[in-house]
Simulated scan of single mutants.
Amino acid sequence: MNRMFSPSTDPGPAAMALPVPVRACVPLAGHAPRVSCGQAVTKGQLVAEALEPGLGDAHAPVAGKVDQVDKWSVCVVAQGEARAEPVDLAALEGGTLRAALRSLGVDIAPLAITNTLVINGLNPEPGVTSTELLLRDFAPTLQAGLDLARRVMGASVCVLALRQGMAASLAGCDTRSVPAVYPRTLDPLVIKAVTGKENPEGVAALSVHELFCLGQVAESGLPCDRTVLTVGECNFLVVVGTPVSEVLAAAELDARDGDRVVLDGLFRGFTARSLGQGVDKGVYGLSVVPAGAHAPVTDAPCMECGRCVRICPSRVDPGLLSGCAEFGLLKQAVDNYIDACMECGLCAYVCPTHRPVLQYIRLAKQQLREVAESV
């Protein structure tokens, strides 16, 4: 088995809890800031409003004073322990509950009404063990998240998908062992492994990290303010907004000039803009890619070798889709099934010209969402 695609199976010791950062920078993406520099905020207070319908709002993970606001982040210098008033979710149902969750920072787009809910309990990418650690050490919070998810989604059937040989459970869920070789760990392929069907109606999936976020909201009535992420051989429990530099220091890693710091996994992740960038909720991994470790990304034209087509689990043509994105041909991208792309990153991994294939596809998807919202 190719080690690059092999699952990581040992989460190791308990996650190390990092201290509350002195200065927390809340990442923004599709948000409009609702605070200004010098303003005092409480923990859990709204700092930026989501502009997309399925996206959750952003909140201060610490009490203190805002010292920076831009399109990328809202930064708060920690001062005091004041908290926002919790929301009583138990008294809410239906659309009111969904609206409350969105106002508490939950991305509600994945919480669609469904009959069958699949909990993806597999580590999402090679080198990441945070999913299995959450299942092992944070079961009560995950259970609270599952109970809340089923209330919102109306799911009558629940299946917890685990890699073969792993023992874990959540009340109200059947368990199913599924292949854990990447990219079979991604939601669409986990659903297929559980149901035997591609894109079956009435079936939705949530990741364990999404349950962890929901569980925190369910337990506290306040926004999710922590995530668990894998760095090297260790896992860390991190307050949202903790600068990347502080996580690297805790893991005793250095990022030098020319290195890239990648949040999430190496196939699907994204490069941090700076070491001061804060960790967002749901981030499950962090890696340092040394300068020169890989050939640089280029804007060379597609040479139509077909490698991306042969490896694509969605059976689309990533090279064609990346070209559509590059030249703004959005209708052609839709006609060639861009929505079927599950963003596994294998296309960019095998591309001999080192085109940013996945990034082009993500760009086109974002542009299509913007067009749909403007209509």
Rank of each mutant, 00 (worst) to 15 (best):
D254F: 05
D257Q: 13
L320P: 00
G95W: 04
L135H: 01
V238E: 05
A364R: 06
V128L: 14
L248S: 04
R150A: 07
R176A: 11
C347E: 00
V35W: 08
G285N: 04
T129L: 04
V20R: 12
Y182T: 03
Q216P: 06
L18T: 06
G282K: 05
T242G: 06
V217Q: 01
L104K: 08
N199A: 15
L237I: 04
A100N: 03
E49A: 14
A50I: 07
V22A: 15
E201I: 08
E132L: 15
V190W: 01
A109Y: 06
C25P: 01
G56T: 02
V62C: 05
L111V: 05
V247R: 05
L51H: 00
V76T: 05
L104P: 00
L142A: 07
V47P: 01
V238G: 08
V66I: 15
R23P: 02
E132G: 06
Y337S: 14
A17P: 02
A171Q: 11
V334M: 12
L134C: 07
L237K: 10
L162M: 10
T271H: 03
G165V: 13
L97D: 03
P301A: 14
N123Y: 01
D107V: 11
R355L: 12
D10G: 01
R307F: 07
G44L: 13
L237R: 12
G215I: 08
V208S: 04
G94E: 06
K71M: 14
S130A: 15
A193C: 05
E370M: 13
T227A: 13
V371I: 14
L286C: 11
L321H: 02
A255P: 07
S8C: 05
P313G: 08
F267N: 07
G221E: 11
L189H: 01
F138R: 14
Q332D: 14
E210D: 13
D259S: 10
C25L: 10
P296D: 12
A205H: 01
G145Q: 07
N199M: 14
E326Y: 01
T195M: 09
K281V: 13
M166P: 00
R184T: 04
G306A: 08
D70S: 12
V47H: 03
C351M: 10
D225G: 08
V181L: 14
R268V: 12
E370S: 11
L170F: 08
E233P: 03
S130D: 03
P318C: 09
V357P: 02
I108C: 07
R310I: 06
L263W: 00
